[in-house]
Design a protein around this nucleic acid. Sequence first.
DNA 1: AAATGGTGCAACCGCGCGCAG
DNA 2: TCTGCGCGCGGTTGCACCATT
Length: 292
Amino acid sequence: MDHLQHVNFDLRREGSSNDNNKKGDEDNNMDFKRGSWTIEEDLTLMNHIALHGEGRWNSLARSAGLKRTGKSCRLRWLNYLRPDVRRGNITLEEQLLILELHSRWGNRWSKIAQHLPGRTDNEIKNYWRTRVQKHAKQLKCDVNSKQFKDTLRYLWMPRLVERIQASSNSNNQVNIQQSNDNIISNNNNIVPNMSFTQENYSSTTTTASSENSIGTQISDMSANCYTNYPINQGDYGESLISPTGYFQNGALDFRTVDIHDNQQNMSQLLLDDVSDNFWNIEDMLFLQQQLN
DNA sequence: AAATGGTGCAACCGCGCGCAG
DNA sequence: TCTGCGCGCGGTTGCACCATT
């Protein structure tokens, strides 16, 4: 039960308090339990939401008999217990989408998450901080610098597209419509018509590594998100598939790329770091090709 | 085998917005 | 208009796990 690995951690926060109780927040009230959620608490919350739906989190927490703040319940539900939440490795397609959308919107994690089915803003934020910022740090440049943004935009993202295309060529095509019919539930609050027990608990909190049909189908779907995935476009004025226009019709367009403008920067990056597992040997060769 | 350091990620925090009264 | 509450967002924290020494 991989997803429960952290259930008992963070006990240091148990019972701690803070005087800044403002705006009606109950977060710092000593009467509320803090720290890791137990299986029993999870089951209580899931069953209550299954019966009564979500929202009005403070009163929900009270009526469910949970000694938790509404905030804590909401967070637990949205980031962990929702049936459609998807955890596990961020796929290449999702990485590409995150980079694209972040280049457009910045740290608007929830907005970005709306376009990655099953992914939470917290998970995307964690991905950005642990992966992308790490690489910026290793490349000795600020994550918000033009240098690093250019690296993402002109080298990392096209490279991801190449990898996606390479992998999609070797995989069977997926019936997107079928996936769409069966899966698309992002942005909707799903209240399954079932109650949760300890026995079916694990199957309701899916992980990406599990071979359940939902995880597989979502993965299949995301594999095609740059070609024909009918994502909810929300407030996009133009195509979500190619927000910045680099990937029109699924094809790379380097017309706007003047790699030589960044030649000095990129050369310095190459000198600075060749050891990272993201910028592997293949990537280094690719970068050098672009610079020559 | 033990110690140490790095990483991933769940959970917490403060802040601000929107809405109802 | 003002006030309080509910909620969501982005940033931060710190433990468990894992790899390395």
